[in-house]
Amino acid sequence: MAALLEIDGIYTTYDKADVLHGISLAVEAGTITCLLGSNGAGKTTLVRSILGLTPARAGRIIFNGIDITRLATHKIIAAGIACIPEGRKVFPKFTAEENLRVGAYQDASETIIRGRIAEIFRIFPRLAERRGQLAGTMSGGEQAMVSIGRGLMCAPKLLLIDEPSLGLSPRLVQENFNIIRQINDRGISILLVEQNVRQTLAISTRGYVLAKGRVVAAGTAAELRGQQQVREAYFG
């Protein structure tokens, strides 16, 4: 059975030099697959390539049987991918609720949107209290909730999550991991970019380690936990 997301030897470049050098990886349906790697390894670039924000110049990205390598971003989203971007990127001049609504931009049905907002408010009761507050005036933790909720609003098949715990307190980080697991329990496959190796491997099925734009290690979470490269990438 083919994986939900299959990346096959992609090269991505910003200006001249390649940042990704022939990356291949797969996200199996229903799993949490993690992407580890030190700063500047190319994790965010990989996410941007999947989303078509910085399309790969070579190689192929197949999602759910469709070649999305060169599709426009809105078509990739329509295919069933959503993203909780690095740095959260909430719309500062939108209220919390408007931020959620824009996450469901491609779903025109008001009933569906209302239902999903209610669901997000069940996960994050704090957002319900602050639904009318401008996201730009919210605390970092609240903005994280807005960003996660917004990513869920289009009911994606695959959710790309880029460093959700950056800048959060240890308690919130733990809560974040619990929520990611809950999201996965609802049947949404996840590609999780993280720096907290231990907690990430604890909830992941499989993982990949990136260094300097190449996959240097891959395997099940249990295999990765024991591997030399993982330790080197972080503690070396």
Partner: peptide, 19 residues
């Protein structure tokens, strides 16, 4: 909503599926 989203942050707006 889409016009205001694009005005705030083009890239994130695209990530939300806005053409």
């Amino acid at each position: 909503l889409a016009i205001r989203a694009v005005a705030q942050d083009e890239e994130t707006a695209r990530t939300m599926g806005i053409n």
